[in-house]
Amino acid sequence: MAALGANLAIAASKFVAFAFSGSSSMLAEGVHSLADSGNQFLLLVGGKRAQREATPQHPFGYGRERFIYAFLVSIVLFSVGGMFAIYEGYEKIRHPHQLEHWYWPVGVLVFAIIAEGFSFRTAIKESNELRGKLSWAQFIRRAKAPELPVVLLEDFGALIGLALALGGVGLALLTGDGVWDGIGTVCIGVLLVLIALVLAAETKSLLLGEAAGLEDVKKIEAAVVDGRTVTGIIHMRTLHLGPEELLIAAKIAVQHDDTAAEVASAINAAEARIRAAVPIARVIYLEPDIYSEAEAAAGPDPKATPGGPTPHPAGH
């Protein structure tokens, strides 16, 4: 919401500055801010649609709609923001003209830097509550909720873009050559394309389906085994159904002389421990089996999730 409000105000001011000065950097930045506003709107729509209840046709719910809308954001940023800016900059380089009323673009750029800085600061504050000890690059790569990484990258790119626009306008004013304004516009377009490609790569991974993080996997492993009825995990797979919804399917080792009632009770207890350790574990399937030395000697399930646990029943 902070990013949406800031970008709408910035977009309006940039278009006014373009109308008075004719600066292509201002036009590119105006379209950039308008695209960013649309992106924030898409993220809000995706978050709302993801809250729908599960249906017979979609039994695991609609949590992954947030990933779809985040991917749409990368497409909008690439096409509307990046490619338009490159085209506009190319045209300005081919047909340069001097800037008029230079104080409009300069004033708007200063205002935009302040507004984007406010939005970026808000995104950093919200992200710090989730990223823990992760670096910023690790947080963007590993975050399952797409909204914060998208806003972080957009705001970071916007601040760099504003600096490029200010540089292009400043050089055009100092030299009297409008080509510099066009060069600054092309640089903005290239920057937006690069950010869009990073976003597309990250959201594509989420769309394909990502496993739980290593820390959550370790918590799940520790929660499953009780050392009495459940003696170990033969193999396990995890999948994010949405940013805050995790599916867990595991084959667990139980004692060969346990009764069905004891196994059922142990499974229920294991599910409760898993949910206590990892609250986003919403869908859990545990299949009991008798641990086999031959199965362990054969190695981990070749179809198991990469990075997931290998067979390690306790006491063997």
Rank of each mutant, 00 (worst) to 15 (best):
M1R: 13
A9L: 15
A11W: 00
A12Y: 06
A12R: 01
A19Y: 13
E29T: 02
G30D: 07
S33N: 14
D36Y: 01
G46A: 13
K48N: 14
P59R: 07
R64V: 01
R64H: 11
E65T: 00
L77W: 04
F78D: 03
V80H: 06
G81R: 00
F84H: 03
H95N: 09
H95T: 02
E100Y: 11
W102E: 10
Y103T: 09
L109E: 06
A112K: 13
S119F: 14
T122G: 06
I124K: 15
R131G: 14
S135K: 12
A137H: 09
Q138M: 02
F139S: 00
P149G: 00
E154P: 02
L159H: 09
G161H: 04
L162M: 15
L164V: 09
L166T: 14
G167N: 07
G168K: 15
G170Q: 10
L173V: 15
V179M: 15
W180M: 03
V193L: 06
A196R: 01
E202G: 01
T203V: 08
K204F: 10
L206D: 06
A211V: 04
I220L: 14
G232Y: 13
H235F: 12
G242E: 02
A250M: 08
Q255S: 13
H256W: 10
D257N: 12
A260Q: 07
A261C: 03
A261W: 08
A264Y: 00
A264G: 00
A270I: 07
A276R: 11
A281W: 09
I284V: 11
D289E: 14
Y291D: 07
T305F: 06
T310L: 12
H316I: 03
